[in-house]
Design a protein around this nucleic acid. Structure first.
Lengths: 233, 233
DNA sequence: CCGAGAGTGTGGACGGTGTCAACATCCGCT
DNA sequence: AGCGGATGTTGACACCGTCCACACTCTCGG
């Protein structure tokens, strides 16, 4: 009874164990044989459920992505500000903080997410692939929505909207990488958190600096409200 | 003659081979046995010159760091602008571009640099350790100098100076990681380059926004120059 | 001139890994 | 009942890092 020939739910057991290991040791600490051993099954039993080691890592990455999204949503939903402009600004900040929160709380899983990141979001701008409809919604979309809000609310000038995703993602991702696995990994937490505040404030300041002035100056501001990006010509 | 028992300069030969391999396959593609094979020497001969695989990787990382610094210096030295403000602004931009240049040109070595990055620069703010005097000057110092110039020249307000290194490093590093090994790795080069320009322009705009206002408009533009939002300070 | 010892390279071994192939077992369906 | 597919096991191969004992070569002191 204790050791049945068929495990029952080996797949999820393996992924669970993999998540646990990756959480502690990162993607490089993930070994199929080790996981099989932990789960109490013989080596390469896993190959009945995963074609590759990479396939298993990919599964862990999806779990990590869920966690990342959850962290971002948690921060986002905690914003109580009512003034539209302040709210939109605050939400963007919190989005970034949620991202870094997760990277700091789960550096191993965070790394897995970005070692096995499937394909660039620009290739499929709508987010979900047709052959993978239930795919987790990218943080990219969350970010895009927050930035759109910032434009709608009148804080971010449309001229500064293009590639704003890349700016925000870059700052926040760079900060996360540098402070978790990078050269700044030993910066004490208080200084680190203060630095993140300043970093995000820098972005906020930039966006505020391009706010459309109340009375439109001689700048025609080329009213391209349509966010059609990739349609270059 | 062709095969002498003593190789002569095995150490450098190994590092050369390692740099070549790492340039193509990144740090994970680096195997001591494989390198020994390439150099035409038996396995673990390398262990007479490197205590560890990590020690060898570290050597490659130093080479990579040299390349990174060279790329940044190249961009920096190419700036011909004479107007002090414009020059300082331009130099900061070019510093970032040089960083990204190298990451895109040598993604494998770039990764090695940051998988084996010794210790945070904040621990040793002066840069060089006393027991390693000839150590390569951090890009961190280059960045700090450029930012100091920006303050001296009057473009960057001193209030925005703290942690400016982290902001700039984060954007640029994040951009590099996302576009080389990350989810944005398949963004075509022209769009990518344009995006970097916009990203850097965003930072520049932020720093300009805190400049002592040339034409102080009636709008204080929410003059909370202190980015401390929720902080109790 | 020679021999000792340090420096360097070789060969073998151990435990670890991913992955393939062949075999064993069990469950569900006919 | 029994058969087939799904699942798990055992064994093997080729890699890997690393430790060990050994072999060769060069240099230096006598």
């Amino acid at each position: 009874m204790t050791t049945r020939y068929h495990h029952g739910n080996l797949r999820t057991a393996l992924v669970d164990a993999a998540v646990e290991v990756a959480s502690e040791k990162g993607p490089d600490g993930l070994a199929v044989r080790d996981l099989a051993r932990r789960v109490g099954v013989s080596h390469n039993a896993a190959y009945r459920h995963f074609s590759d080691r990479d396939a298993l890592v990919e599964e862990v990455a999806q779990r990590g992505m869920q966690g990342l999204l959850a962290a971002m949503h948690a921060r986002l939903d905690a914003v109580t500000e009512t003034d539209p402009v302040e709210r939109a600004r605050c939400r963007l900040q919190e989005l970034g903080k949620g991202y870094v929160d997760y990277a700091l709380a789960e550096p191993g899983l965070f790394r897995v997410v970005f070692t096995a990141y499937p394909e660039p979001p620009s290739a499929a701008p709508s987010g979900s692939d047709p052959d993978d409809p239930g795919a987790a919604p990218d943080p990219y979309q969350l970010l895009g929505a927050a930035l759109d809000d910032l434009v709608d609310v009148g804080f971010l000038h449309p001229d500064a909207r293009p590639d704003a995703e890349m700016t925000c993602w870059s700052v926040v991702h760079g900060f996360a990488v540098l402070t978790t696995e990078g050269p700044l990994r030993a910066v004490p937490a208080p200084e680190r958190d203060a630095a993140l505040d300043r970093v995000l404030a820098t972005i906020d300041r930039s966006y505020g600096a391009t706010t459309a002035p109340r009375r439109p100056r001689d700048e025609p501001a080329m009213a391209t409200d349509g966010p059609t990006r990739g349609a270059s010509g």
